[in-house]
């Protein structure tokens, strides 16, 4: 898929583990893992909002478009 999820990059910048983020955004570890590995087909605005709030970033920091 040409949409790349840079969740791991932002987590590394904020020095936050997947467990910690899952607890703060109220998502299961399994769902967050799907998002992190790029297997997700869609993301809800509410999820995006919660992740942006916790990681203190913009949606553009998490998502990237690449047609390569």
């Amino acid at each position: 898929m040409p949409i790349i999820v840079n969740l791991d990059v932002m987590m590394a910048r904020r020095k936050m583990s997947l467990n910690e983020l899952a607890g703060k955004v109220d998502l299961t570890l399994a769902n967050l893992s799907i998002l992190k590995t790029g297997k997700a087909k869609a993301i809800r605005f509410s999820t995006l909002e919660a992740i942006c709030k916790v990681l203190d970033c913009q949606p553009g920091d998490l998502l990237e478009y690449s047609d390569k």
Partner: peptide, 8 residues
């Protein structure tokens, strides 16, 4: 259903 399950 698959899309729904993979919507986070």
């Amino acid at each position: 259903q698959s899309e729904h399950e993979l919507t986070i």
